[in-house]
Write a protein that binds this DNA or RNA. Structure first.
Length: 533
RNA sequence: GCCGCCGUAGCUUAGUUGGUUAAAGCGCCUGAUUGUGGUUCAGGAGAUCAAGGGUUCAAAUCUCUUCGGUGGUACCA
């Protein structure tokens, strides 16, 4: 026998996981509660396929057969025509249609499929030339489901398959929609069960950051890297990424990374951007202005005090003012939604307001270290949606709740509800009584009570009781020959047996007499209904 | 991806100047227990010490490689 003989054994793919009933219960609750809030604001529930044409999902078109850029992609087994941007079949010199196995990708978020969905809906009027950036139709939908990312390194709590519940508004420039998105996030957090002051919705506006950087002359810089002059967008992204880390590496670390670089606690050297002193001190002024500020009004005051004449900056400032006014009128105070001028969010596609929900709670890991979960929701305005598919822009804003992160937070901070009761359990004593067991089960189900009849091959009563116990059944019904003849049922209250006061009982008979009772068959359904309530 | 640490029963861990049958708690299984889940008591199964190579008379222990985990860092649609 060859030692290297290829075999099969049960295992799962790295970064994927099985979800047990407890976690499923929590996840279902999060999704249900969030969806209720979304619907309250008028969002409709849409669903889209898990797999899309790779070119429809965005810029991640693999040109090799390997998976790159963090997306699961593969060739469609089916051969299909190649199309032009206008949807016409592409033909070769012999006028026959060019066929190809197109690249497919598993969705890596719910926004890219939204862009495709929306584009398809407006496709006809786009083709007729009736669609401009000014008259994009309004579309508001929410969606939840699994998304997939091929993460190279799997940090704890990060998976390759995870859930999002997302809502978006397409077709409006009005930042009222962004303010509304923040209210929705706050409402959703509280509907799910997070207490006031244990979370905060942080809001910023990309225009403020961009305008500020422009004002201090960042975009006039000519920074060279290996002889190549860097694009200003690249530099903007690089600076924003560093600013985003201010919570983690503090002002000092940010300034070092903007300058000559620094060495972190692990000893790793981080190369700095080596920006001129004037730029660094400008950013320093900006960041240090907001230390110890507790209200949105004060933030707006500080931003106004900069007295900056840059148009983009002031546009952003006006947007924040409008958002603040709206929130204030409706009563969303600083303890729920706060402005955070240092908030960036990684993604390059954000164009205006950005928001993020952070948990303020900490927990101790198994080694006793104090830890925090970090951002549990994220979103913002992205006015470039649909550009990839139609060549014109649609203004859009929306956000997503990281369902798995939030579930983890609830479990780590012991905010998950107790596991729901399992079914009423009917013990299998005697094959001949099966019709009676089934009859009782049907009656209970008709009364709206979940009921299970035991079918297992391990028929020892002890095994059956342990099975019911593991399934968290509240009640077990015992009907043997004796009970059947006498027209009674032994009802055992398993839930009561788990009660702490019962744990002190040493005597077996005493224990049993307290939790089990004989009930007349004709009163059974009523009796159980009362216990289950 | 880069740097550091770790990998011993299902889980949590003990086990170094390399030296008999690798230890414990929890969990699991069997019985006392009566057709009866908890508690109590008695007993039992379960580990090629992550995998593969090297050094040695001798490796869980030293060394190399790979894989997996973890703490940073980078990236993140």
């Amino acid at each position: 026998m060859s030692k290297n003989k290829r075999g099969v054994f049960p295992r799962k793919i790295k970064g994927f996981r099985d979800i047990n009933p407890e976690l499923n219960q929590l996840r279902t609750k999060i999704i249900t509660k969030a969806a209720e809030v979304y619907r309250k604001y008028g969002y409709e529930h849409w669903d889209t396929p898990s797999i899309e044409y790779a070119d429809n999902l965005g810029k991640y078109m693999p040109d090799k057969d390997t998976i790159e850029e963090g997306v699961y992609s593969f060739r469609n087994p089916e051969n299909e025509p190649v199309y032009t941007n206008k949807g016409e079949e592409l033909r070769d010199n012999d006028n026959s249609v060019i066929m190809e196995n197109h690249y497919l990708s598993m969705r890596y978020d719910l926004t890219a499929p939204l862009a495709r969905l929306y584009s398809e809906k407006v496709w006809q009027s786009y083709m007729q030339g009736n669609l401009t950036e000014k008259n994009m139709p309004l579309f508001r939908r929410y969606q939840f489901g699994k998304v997939f990312r091929y993460e190279a390194k799997l940090d704890p709590g990060r998976f390759r398959e995870f859930w999002q519940i997302d809502f978006d508004t397409v077709g409006t420039n009005d930042v009222s929609a962004d303010a509304e998105a923040c209210m929705i996030l706050s409402d959703a957090m509280e509907a799910i069960g997070l207490k006031r002051n244990t979370y905060i919705v942080n809001v910023n506006d990309r225009k403020i950051l961009k305008g500020f950087l422009e004002n201090i002359g960042v975009f006039k810089l000519k920074i060279e890297d290996d002889g190549k002059i860097l694009q200003s967008e690249y530099l903007e992204q690089a600076i924003l990424r560093i600013i985003d880390k201010v919570d983690k590496i503090y002002l000092k670390g940010v300034l070092e990374e903007l300058g000559k670089g620094r060495t972190d606690i692990s000893g790793a050297k981080i190369i700095g951007l080596d920006l001129p002193e004037s730029i660094i001190s400008g950013i320093n002024n900006y960041l240090s202005a907001f230390e110890n500020i507790k209200t949105r009004a004060e933030i707006i005051e500080k931003l106004t005090e900069f007295n900056i004449t840059n148009d983009i900056f002031n546009e952003g400032l006006e947007e924040l003012k409008k958002i603040d006014l709206l929130l204030k009128n409706i009563g969303y105070k600083d303890d729920r939604i706060m402005f955070t001028p240092t908030l960036v969010r990684g993604m390059a596609y954000y164009t205006g307001p950005v928001f993020e929900v952070n948990s303020l709670q900490t927990y101790k890991d198994h080694k006793g270290r104090k830890r925090a979960v970090g951002a549990i929701c994220g979103g913002g305005r992205y006015d470039g949606l649909v550009k990839n598919l139609l060549g014109i822009k649609a203004p859009a804003t929306g956000a997503s709740i990281g369902v798995d992160r939030l579930a983890e937070l609830l479990m780590l901070t012991n905010q998950n509800d107790d596991l729901e009761d399992g079914p009423v359990f009917i013990v299998m004593f005697d094959d001949n009584l099966m019709p009676e067991y089934q009859k009782i089960a049907a009656e209970l189900r008709n009364a709206g009570i979940e009921t299970e009849v035991y079918y297992g091959s391990q028929k020892q009563l002890k095994k059956q009781m342990k099975y019911a116990d593991k399934k968290n059944s509240p009640i077990a019904l015992l009907i043997g020959e004796n009970e059947f003849k006498e027209g009674v049922v032994t009802v055992k209250n398993l839930k009561l047996g788990k009660d702490k006061s019962m744990q002190t009982i040493q005597d077996r008979n005493e224990w049993q007499s307290k939790i089990q009772k004989q009930v007349k068959r004709e009163n059974l359904i009523e009796y159980i209904s009362k216990i289950i309530k």
